[in-house]
């Protein structure tokens, strides 16, 4: 579904991703772990099409198409969803209105019939029930005045409603207490499907107790330096990221590595 080859990305003139390669098949859950500053959020942002992320080399193929050639809204309509690390507050834009406009814009792009307000509300109620969310959130402005946990839950609610094919969760666990974390994980697990892939970006192993990944990657200094099954996350938890750094001595500092 997603194939990233040798991706180099600069942000504000500084190279953040330095040759990242990654392949995700439909139905899989991949986790990306890594220390702060490794480029985890950059990966999510560049896949979603945020401005200011300059791809210098490399390719990203999504369902056989060049993902990087698409506008952010086209990527969304083609099924790419980014759950933001810091969801944006948008005063004055009603959450329900926003979600219906977004869903209908995607449907229109795909040549599907738009949903009227009754059809939309029916869908909303189904998803709310699955996620145990209060419908009060719907009547407020997008993320405005939401607590950190509410914002993250709203992201997962959007994920459930928009039903993307590739969902990227950018540190969705950060700032969540254990109950909220479980709820987010339940929401994601309910969405797991042979036709859908997840890329879960996280700093801590904790989330992966609830969303069990098929593959775990370690991202360090702009590259995937280690991949493995879920046990890799546990090793990281045990030994810390220094363990990875010790095993992958950067090339320019190779004096002691030859022996």
């Amino acid at each position: 579904m997603l194939k990233i080859v040798d991706l180099h990305v600069r942000v504000a003139g500084k190279e953040i991703l330095k040759g990242l390669s990654l392949e995700i098949a439909a139905g899989q859950v991949h986790a990306i772990m890594g220390p702060n500053g490794a480029g985890k959020s950059t990966l999510g942002n560049v896949l979603a099409g945020r401005e200011g992320y300059e791809v210098t080399t490399g390719t990203v193929e999504y369902q056989g198409r060049d993902l990087l050639a698409l506008e952010p809204e086209e990527r969304a309509a083609e099924g790419v969803f980014l759950a933001f690390q810091y969801p944006v507050e948008i005063p004055g834009v009603n959450n329900t209105y926003f979600l219906r406009a977004a869903l209908n814009a995607q449907r229109k792009h795909r040549g599907e019939a738009e949903l009227d307000s009754m059809q939309f509300l029916k869908k909303v109620r189904e998803k709310l029930a699955v996620l145990h969310l209060k419908d009060e959130l719907l009547h407020r402005a997008v993320n405005e005045g939401f607590s950190g946990g509410e914002k993250k839950r709203n992201e997962i609610f959007q994920l459930a409603l928009l039903e993307p094919r590739l969902a990227i969760l950018d540190e969705t666990d950060s700032g969540l207490d254990i109950d909220a974390l479980r709820m987010v994980a339940d929401g994601v697990n309910a969405m797991r499907d042979p036709a859908r892939a997840f890329l879960v970006v996280t700093h801590y192993q904790r989330l992966l107790d609830y969303i069990v990944p098929d593959v775990v990657h370690v991202l360090a200094d702009g590259r995937i330096v280690e991949s493995g099954d879920k046990s890799l996350a546990l090793k990281l938890e045990e030994h810390g990221y220094a363990w990875i750094a010790g095993r992958h001595v950067p090339a320019h500092d190779g004096a002691g590595a030859g022996g």
Partner: peptide
């Protein structure tokens, strides 16, 4: 706000619609 604009677009709203939505909200306040 570029961040708000990107947030709306990342959910599938075309650029012009996202801009209109933000401007309408700004005035509506």
């Amino acid at each position: 706000d570029e961040r708000a604009l990107f947030y709306l677009r990342s959910r599938g709203l075309p650029l012009d619609l996202a801009r209109r939505m933000l401007v309408a909200a700004f005035c509506g306040a």
